[in-house]
């Protein structure tokens, strides 16, 4: 089925994921009004319910919500790491081409797509990095998957990425375990950028970092967004982080998208009770 692109990179329709058997009362007893995503009757978690969004090439979209709101589930579905129960993820390669539904790709093509067109940075570096390989090896993994077969060229590109992400290039062969938390986020960013992805997924990338380190990582992300005009999806519980980077924001609660809009509108004129609470709770 073909879709008009209307100049979007990614278009998500009715994406849902639940964990558990489900019962007739699930949708009535969960959601933002009920204040939970877990059905009290059958225990099923409706982690993400009918999520829809679209991303234009080069834009940064923020997803904000508390833990358990479903924002990470949504991100993992977009990362093709969690399989949704229903919905579609349409992807249109910039510069034309027929949009494809990523959920219809077979496992092999999906992994290929994930490597070539997606980059992800996790909150916890050990989820995104193999701690047994060197930092250079971790970054090289994406290049090797893209069939780079020249060690010299791989190391040159890896060094370039390390320099771009302000990592000490001379430590290319060191183990990730010897790097600080902020540096490991940079390594993840370098790895994510290696394949020049169309979409970068950022999952709470600065949570758990010292404030000064947080600021530098955010500066780096902003600079890269600026230089590469890369499309980003930024998940955070912190409106401050979202405001710095995203021009549009989606607010999630208990598995549902409760509000979406321009970031300044979300901040200055929030509509949903939860968003008003969120904005008023900012430090």
């Amino acid at each position: 089925m073909e879709r008009p692109t209307d100049d979007w990179l990614l278009r998500v329709e009715g994406l849902s994921k639940r964990y558990g058997p489900g019962c007739p009362s699930c949708s009535r007893l969960t959601g933002p009004e009920a204040g939970t995503s877990q059905c009290p009757r059958c225990g099923t978690v409706l982690a993400c319910v009918a999520a829809g969004l679209s991303l234009r090439p080069g834009e940064v979209l923020g997803i904000v919500g508390e833990s358990g709101s479903g924002k990470s589930t949504l991100l993992q579905m977009l990362n093709l790491a969690v399989k949704p129960d229903s919905g579609a993820i349409w992807y249109a390669e910039p510069g034309g081409g027929t949009p494809i539904d990523l959920l219809r790709l077979n496992a092999y093509s999906a992994r290929r797509f994930r490597n070539d067109r997606l980059g992800i940075v996790h909150q916890r570096p050990e989820l995104g990095l193999n701690m047994h390989f060197s930092v250079g090896g971790n970054v090289a993994e994406k290049l090797l998957l893209a069939e780079w077969r020249h060690v010299g060229k791989i190391r040159a590109r890896t060094s370039e990425l390390m320099a771009q992400t302000e990592l000490p290039v001379e430590r290319i062969d060191d183990a990730p375990g010897t790097f600080s938390g902020g540096m490991l986020q940079r390594v993840q960013i370098a790895k994510a950028l290696a394949s020049r992805p169309a979409l970068l997924l950022l999952d709470e990338v600065t949570s758990g970092l010292d404030l000064s380190v947080q600021a530098r990582v955010l500066d780096l992300i902003r600079r890269i967004q600026w230089e590469e005009q890369i499309t980003m999806l930024l998940v955070s519980h912190d409106l401050g982080v979202i405001r710095q980077l995203a021009r549009r924001t989606i607010v999630m609660k208990s598995g549902h998208i409760v509000e979406s809009g321009l970031t300044d509108q979300i901040m200055e004129d929030p509509q949903h009770p939860y968003t008003q609470l969120l904005v008023s709770s900012a430090l």
């Binding site: 496992a107 193999n130 390989f133 060197s134 090896g137 090797l144 060690v151 190391r155």
Partner: peptide, 19 residues
């Protein structure tokens, strides 16, 4: 194997060269 996902083995080979 099923997905021909051999990137990690290639990293292993890369590390072998580097080390």
């Amino acid at each position: 194997h099923g997905e021909a996902d051999y990137a990690r083995m290639w990293v292993y080979m890369y590390e072998s060269v580097v080390k």
